[in-house]
Design a protein around this nucleic acid. Structure first.
Lengths: 227, 227
DNA sequence: ACAGCCATCACCCATCCGGGGGATTTGGCG
DNA sequence: CGCCAAATCCCCCGGATGGGTGATGGCTGT
């Protein structure tokens, strides 16, 4: 209500003629109301950019994107319902040139990889300064892919590691549920020997010795989620 | 900058005489700049309350608290360096009547318990609406302990569970590092049989069958942290 | 003094797990 | 077509793990 009042008063007179004719139009997507409020304040507090819409999850983001066609989507990765990755892919179907900046709490390398691979132009952590977030918005709008050092380092770490196969991910998924080899075998309709075989390569790839270490490592890397 | 302009205009004429003479003075503590910005905007956007200071971690919160003596401390629980729990305890040493509201991303029951037990007057999740956060600030300032249903439910769940002893926590701490029984025994200077003994009671208390399940359960409850 | 909880350790034993081999089939890719 | 990675399965085996049962000493509260 207060923001609206201000916006009307500000837009009507247009007292600042150094303001560029076309501002960077930003869509803010985050399921935490206070965080969303912070991002809106952050963007609107910067000259040359303005929040044109907000959404609290992936579905809403897509709806709103079609209506407003913003220049930049500033989005959380972990959201209830449709997550960030699915949202990026859906947005790219609508507009292949969409500029998504992910703003995440976590620096799990798998999360970063998936976001970037899905087409995010940047991946920032939530402890990023106001200036750097604003700067990234400008850089991405200018066509760059602005990835901070800490984040790209994680990405490099991931590329060092041997990637898990689909089946190995199936196994690790059940592993973190505390399932025994026999139970995993049963769930995947394969023999227990095959499970052990997958586990062997899995341990090697993650650089661990047993299932407990593997479970922890998988969580730490963001390969599986605890939700 | 925009918020300041508005505040000046609003405060100067004082057109609303239903406004209380003394506003609720709030200290906002969060390590994420954009979240801090959101909370500041949220509080300052409410009538009857105002942000008098900000801090980005526990240490700074204590310094700033002594200078400003706010009515309410709105604080994140997980922060680098001194965490929320230590910060609450330290603040209570300075001022036993301090009103701390924890605003956390996680609803781990152990986190909630520790925060409340340390003396937090409320525990809100970050997906709480702006209205409810503001309302909680007012309620806590009025002397209530406003705990949302979802959170108190978690607290109830925890009280159902048998509490871990100190030694059991030691064991689980090493367990989530992927240590074997022998290694745990070695680290704690006890026999392997004793470790197995602790694990037995640990499994029973957590309602699990093996070490991997125990590790996951401990993480899910917030008994141990992955940091 | 006695009960109750905790930490410590011991023994037995069935089962599970992980490391070491190796084999087969399937599908893709050059 | 040959090569290779992936998925499937098999065997062996020593050591780790977890369940059961019990004992001892220390500390606490009544």
């Amino acid at each position: 209500m207060i923001a609206m009042t201000w916006e009307l008063e500000f837009n009507a007179p247009n007292m600042d003629d150094s303001e560029p004719a076309t501002e960077i139009r930003v869509l803010v997507v985050d399921d935490h109301p206070s965080m969303r409020m912070g991002l809106v304040a952050l963007i609107n507090g910067q000259r040359g950019m303005t929040v044109v819409a907000e959404a609290c999850d992936g579905e809403e983001a897509i709806e709103v994107y079609e209506d407003t066609r913003p220049d930049i989507v500033l989005m959380d990765l972990r959201m209830p319902g449709m997550g960030g990755v699915e949202a990026i892919l859906a947005l790219r179907k609508i507009d292949p040139a969409v500029n998504v900046i992910i703003l995440s709490t976590y620096d799990w390398d798998e999360d970063i990889h998936l976001a970037i691979q899905s087409g995010a132009k940047s991946y920032l952590l939530k402890d990023t300064s106001v200036e750097e977030i604003a700067d990234t918005v400008r850089r991405v709008h200018g066509g760059d892919a602005a990835i901070p050092g800490q984040v790209s380092q994680r990405l490099a770490e991931r590329s060092q590691r041997q990637q898990l196969t689909e089946r190995e991910r199936d196994v690790v998924e059940l592993l973190i549920k505390g399932r025994s080899n026999k139970e995993i075998a049963c769930s995947l309709f394969i023999s227990e020997e095959t499970v052990k075989s997958h586990l062997k390569t899995l341990f090697a790839k993650l650089g661990v010795r047993d299932r407990t270490e593997a479970a922890i490592a998988a969580i730490r890397h963001g390969i599986v989620h605890l939700d």
